[in-house]
């Protein structure tokens, strides 16, 4: 029953999120409202972590399977896919590299320039990799 109750809480938040999607005139999907509601609930401890975590971990774990049916829907969009296949591949690959480089460089600079306490807890790892990089 514990699992069912956890699922019931998650489903209830999903339902409230759907109502919000209907009422709020913003281009935001219900699932995002739900995610934020759940996060606020956890932070404020209105929803204690142990009341949802087993069901939530299960759902997050099986998530890749949930993408299978929508992706098979590509069968219905083959024409649209063909039309943009080259830009799709180029844009996806190039922007992935750019995002990785910029995110990494910016956060690295902030860690190194920022307050020294930012390195606590990772000093070992950091020292090892840094040494490797210098050599």
């Amino acid at each position: 029953m514990k699992f069912m109750r956890q699922l019931a809480i998650i489903m209830s938040i999903s339902f409230i999120a759907e109502v919000m999607e209907y009422l709020i005139p913003l281009p935001v999907a219900a699932s995002i409202y739900g995610l934020i509601l759940m996060l606020i609930g956890l932070i404020t401890k209105i929803i204690p972590l142990h009341k949802v975590e087993d069901a939530a971990d299960f759902l997050v774990e099986i998530m890749p399977i949930l993408f299978v049916p929508p992706t098979v829907g590509i069968m219905a969009s083959v024409e649209a896919l063909k039309q943009m296949l080259v830009p799709l591949c180029v844009i996806s690959v190039v922007s992935t590299v750019l995002v990785m480089v910029v995110t990494g460089r910016v956060s690295q600079r902030m860690i190194r320039k920022g307050n020294g306490d930012a390195r606590d807890g990772v000093s070992m790892d950091g020292a090892v990799t840094q040494k490797g990089a210098i050599q």
Partner: peptide
């Protein structure tokens, strides 16, 4: 039939709050 699988997408996305909270 497969629509019963993606039914769980919204609850699963809501559940992403848990690993973030941790």
């Amino acid at each position: 039939g497969a629509k019963y699988i993606d039914f769980f997408l919204t609850p699963a996305t809501v559940s992403l709050a848990v690993p973030l909270y941790r």
